[in-house]
Structure formats: structure tokens, C-alpha cells
Design a protein around this nucleic acid. Structure first.
Ligand SMILES: [Mn+2]
Ligand SMILES: [Mn+2]
Ligand SMILES: [Zn+2]
Ligand SMILES: [Zn+2]
Lengths: 137, 137
DNA sequence: TCTCACATTGTAATCATTACAATCAGAGGG
DNA sequence: CCCTCTGATTGTAATGATTACAATGTGAGA
């Protein structure tokens, strides 16, 4: 019936109302939200929800590969439920984090030098196209 | 006389004993230390030193381009006084952060799509060569 | 239905970072 | 020289993201 019930079941995560809401939010908001943004939004409908449940659920989703943590903005982690490999740009004007789909020769996790590579993160900092147009920077 | 006195003067940062020690430490330890690691080490010789002074000095050094912040390990920022563009690997076995000198087509900060790029960060997570040899993973 | 073991949740603590008040040092006036 | 004032530097105390762990809930088996 519900798409998110299926996803949770398929990955062996027990279905709870909190988890469903968090998963739904992440799947419908590809804005790379912080834990606090998820919390603030969902608290409106579920006042008893605690922030820790956000973190716990995030951890579960991460464990089965449904979620990736971005360490691009100082102070707080951001979360991304688009898990195909892509890079990110943090705009210093509007604060948004944009997906950057560039050809990256290291995305396939092979690297000279004998190290084993499990994750590849490409972060850019700058000013996004929209803000450049607007602000005339 | 002292190399570090010169560097601070050249960049218009007032010379103080705390700043000299912090700069010396960063220049002689290219291990990408956290603020706490710098603090713990320098506190031995300067017990009155506060952690905030570490952060303040780091900010000053960053402002004149002598230092870069790495957001590769969760929980804490790491600092790098090697400012030529290079990538990093965080080893999940030994916890070390290694310099990775690969050809990166995006290091020159030009990117299709109309965004302005100011910084490029390439982070890899995995297991370093040394740990692979040792552990037989 | 009752008990127990484990999973889930949320309260309270932890710890990196930041805001701001206390301290210091140097410039200019007496 | 010494005193005063101003801005720079420092460190104490607050903030806020994250984590540890105790309280609560759930579901299987007796
Ligand atoms: Mn993304
Ligand atoms: Mn480095
Ligand atoms: Zn922008
Ligand atoms: Zn290693």
C-alpha cells in the first residue's frame, strides 16, 4: 500500500509512525536538510517526536544504504536520500546545497596508491548561478 | 629571526606567544590535527592557554589563507597548513587522515553550470595502505 | 493472559564551537 | 615618563549538535 512501508520492510527495519514520517520527508525534500530542519517540520504534526529519534532513524537508514551524510556545512551534518554518486555545492549567499553532476574520475572508488576506497565525497564552496544572476556579484 | 614571527608579521597578524606556538605546531605537524589535539599538546607548556584562543588563532590564519579546514571526520574539524590543493583519505582503521595527491579536474575551480567556485574539497573514506597490509583486510 | 527479552524512544549528558565580557598593550596627551 | 583611552586579544560561560543510557513499548513464547 504505502511506498515507505515497503521500503522499510524490504530493508528489515521495523515500521513505526516516526520512521515513516522521517523517510517520507527525506524522500520528498531533496534539499539536503539538517537533522534540525527535519525535526522542526515533523514536530508540527507529531509534537511528541524527539530529535534523537531523528538521529536514530537516520542511522538506520544509513546502515542499509538509503541515506548519505554530507559534511559540507560547518556545525551540522546534512542528509541526502539520493544515493547515486554525485557532488555538492554549498552556496555562501543563499545557503542552499545543490547537486552537482560532474564526471568524476574517482567516483568508481578506485585510486592509485594501494588504499581501499569506500566513499567518495566531492564538495564545492562558492556562489550558485541563481545568486550570481540576482546579486550581480 | 624566528620564521614564524616573520610569517605572522607578513600577514598583518600581531605576534603573541600563543599564536607563535599554534603556528609552529601546525607547521611542524602535518597530521591534520583537531582543535583539541593542538590544545592538549600546547597546554603542556602553556597551562593558561584556552581552547578559544586555538579557535581564534585558527580563524586568523584561515583569514589570510595560511590554513584550511577539513570537514572529513564527523564530530570535529581538522586543520591543514599545507594549502596547495590536494585531497584527503580518512582511514577507518587507524583514524589517520592522509594527503592524496591525485589529478583532479576540478581543482582549478572551474565548473560547468554557471556557479562560482571558491573552494574544492575531495574526501575519500576507506582503509589506508598500511592498515590493509597489517590487518589483512 | 502473563512474563521476559529486545527494540524503540526520548531525557539528560557530552563535547565542539561561538558569544561576549575581562584583560592587556600600545598610542597619544599631560 | 606616567596616565588614560581604545581597540585587540584572551578565556569564561553559553550554545547547540550529537550521543549515552534509562524509560517505555512490543511481541513471542509459556
Ligand atoms: Mn545531493
Ligand atoms: Mn592535507
Ligand atoms: Zn545561492
Ligand atoms: Zn590506516
Amino acid at each position: 500500500m504505502d511506498k515507505y512501508v515497503d521500503i522499510l520492510k524490504k530493508h528489515g527495519i521495523k515500521v513505526t509512525p516516526q520512521r515513516l514520517e522521517i523517510l517520507r520527508f527525506l524522500d520528498t525534500h531533496h534539499t539536503h536538510p539538517s537533522a534540525d530542519e527535519i525535526y522542526m517540520e515533523l514536530k508540527k504534526k507529531h509534537p511528541s517526536l524527539s530529535k534523537t529519534t531523528i538521529y536514530n532513524t537516520i542511522q538506520s537508514l544509513k546502515d542499509c544504504g538509503l541515506l548519505v551524510t554530507l559534511l559540507i556545512s560547518p556545525n551540522e551534518s546534512r542528509f541526502d536520500s539520493l544515493i547515486n554518486p554525485h557532488h555538492h555545492l554549498l552556496c555562501s549567499e543563499c545557503g542552499k546545497i545543490l547537486d552537482i553532476n560532474v564526471e568524476c574520475p574517482y567516483s568508481r572508488k578506485v585510486l592509485a596508491g594501494g588504499h581501499r576506497i569506500d566513499e567518495v565525497h566531492g564538495y564545492f564552496k562558492g556562489v550558485c548561478e541563481k545568486c550570481l544572476m540576482k546579486g550581480g556579484k
